[in-house]
Amino acid sequence: MSEHPTPATAVELARYVDHTLLKPEATAADVSALVTEGAALGVFSVCVSPTFVAHAVEAAGGRLAVATVCGFPSGKHASEIKAAEAARSVLDGADEVDMVIDVGAAKAGGFDVVQDDIAAVRAAVPADKILKVIIESAALTDTEVVAACRAAEAAGADFVKTSTGFHPTGGASVHAVELMAATVGGRLGIKASGGVRTLADAQAMIAAGATRLGLSGTGAVLAGFDADGGADTTAPDGGSY
């Protein structure tokens, strides 16, 4: 598979990033610090828990987009609950919503259920807002990854996303991103998240087809451009996302 061009500078790479804080113990002060850091780094957005959307929007003051999550992290929520959660986040000012599919339905081959679930959230998220669909790719077979991406596209999603970063099977992989890009790339965005901790990781995901990255240790990743030998191997301090 041909590689996609990778960013040559920290400024270019930062525009791929959803600077993320989803730890349950996060405070409003932590979110304020996240926004301040994200703005200084030049990231595309911050991604916060639903209860912090309004606070993040106020703190951001239009300097960067605000994303949040829905049905997170298990996806085991009734579709109407996911839709209500997404609608509330949009009301609070979210620009983007990252929803989790019912992974069990996907494992059972119920991709009609998966599609209907996504469609319910899409109906609650206006067309001018971005809907990303987290498929938890590390828990799926290749065939299931492809089917989940097709269900997301059929339901009107804007992006497919690898992972929550909280599943025990792991986060993003180059293989999963390549497979997702081969299935819906050019029509839907591809977000790689979960375990992307170094510049080398980030560049590999973009080369595989990722158009957005979910990072909690953004500063460490971007600092890789200044490190001897390229990649910085410092672990993120903002959680496992």
Results as ranks from 00 to 15, higher is better:
A65P: 00
V196M: 02
F225H: 15
L213V: 14
D142Y: 03
T27H: 13
G189F: 05
D92P: 04
G171V: 13
R187Y: 13
A202F: 02
T198F: 09
D128N: 11
G170S: 10
L41M: 08
A108S: 08
H77G: 00
A127R: 15
A138M: 13
V97Q: 01
A29G: 05
A181F: 10
D98L: 00
V114R: 01
G219H: 04
G104Q: 02
A65Q: 04
V121C: 05
L215G: 13
T169Y: 06
V90D: 01
K82A: 02
S163E: 06
P5I: 03
S240G: 04
A67L: 01
K82L: 00
H4L: 15
D18Y: 05
V48H: 04
A223Y: 00
D98G: 03
L22C: 15
A172I: 05
L34P: 07
F159V: 06
G229D: 12
Y241H: 08
E136K: 02
G239Q: 09
R212P: 02
D116F: 00
P236Q: 14
R187W: 14
A59N: 09
A26V: 12
I81V: 15
P5C: 10
A39Q: 13
A151P: 07
A220V: 01
A87N: 00
T183V: 07
R197D: 03
P126W: 04
G75C: 06
A210L: 08
V66N: 02
V174S: 03
S32V: 15
V53E: 03
D30P: 05
T162N: 12
V90Q: 01
L34D: 04
V35F: 05
A147H: 00
A154K: 15
D92A: 14
A119K: 14
V66Q: 02
T20V: 12
A108V: 01
S193K: 10
T6H: 11
T162V: 11
G238H: 06
S163C: 10
D30T: 07
G194I: 13
V100L: 00
F111A: 12
G189E: 08
G61V: 07
V35I: 07
D201F: 14
V196A: 01
L199T: 07
M180S: 15
L91G: 00
Y16C: 05
I118N: 09
T218M: 03
T27N: 14
V66R: 02
A127H: 12
A138V: 12
C70F: 08
V11S: 07
S137P: 12
F166M: 15
A220Y: 08
R63E: 10
A182Q: 14
I134P: 09
P168C: 00
L199N: 06
I134T: 10
S32Q: 15
D117I: 01
T36H: 04
S193E: 13
L41D: 05
L179E: 01
T9H: 11
G38K: 09
A67S: 08
I190H: 11
A204Y: 03
A154M: 14
V177Q: 12
L64W: 06
H55Q: 05
E37A: 15
V31I: 15
K129A: 12
A86S: 04
G219W: 02
S74A: 11
